[in-house]
Write a protein that binds this DNA or RNA. Sequence first.
DNA 1: CCGATGACCAAAC
DNA 2: TGTTTGGCCATCG
Length: 109
Amino acid sequence: MSGGTFARFRDIVCRIPAGKVATYGQIARLAGMPRCARTVGYAMAGCQDPDLPCHRVVDRFGGTKAAFDAWAPGTQRALLEAEGVVFRPDGTADLETCQWDPSAETQNA
DNA sequence: CCGATGACCAAAC
DNA sequence: TGTTTGGCCATCG
C-alpha cells in the first residue's frame, strides 16, 4: 500500500481542514491524476479509514453521495455543519464558501 | 489468479 | 450548445 496511489489520496483527504470540503476531481488533481477522480471515490468506498475524513469529500456540486447516505444517513452533512461548512437549501455544501483551497493550504497539518 | 466494477470529472464530437 | 465517451487505480468476487 505504501507508495500506492490510494495512500496519496488518503494523505490529501486527511489534510482537508475542518469546515472545508474538497471535490473528488480536486483531490485527484492534487494527487497528480486529474482523470483519476473515480479512483478517489473508490479509495473511500473500499477503504473507509477512520482517519479518512471522507465526509469532507463531496462531488463537484458539493452534494453528498448516496453511498455515503447508506453508510451514515445524514451524518456527513451533520459533521460538515458541525465543522462550520455552510449548506444550501438544496442540501449541497456551498463550494464557493467552503471548498478547500489547496493553494491557501497554510495549515500544513 | 483474473475480470469487472466503482462515491467521478473533463474533454471531444 | 448539449450529450457522450473516455480514463484511472485499487479492491471485490
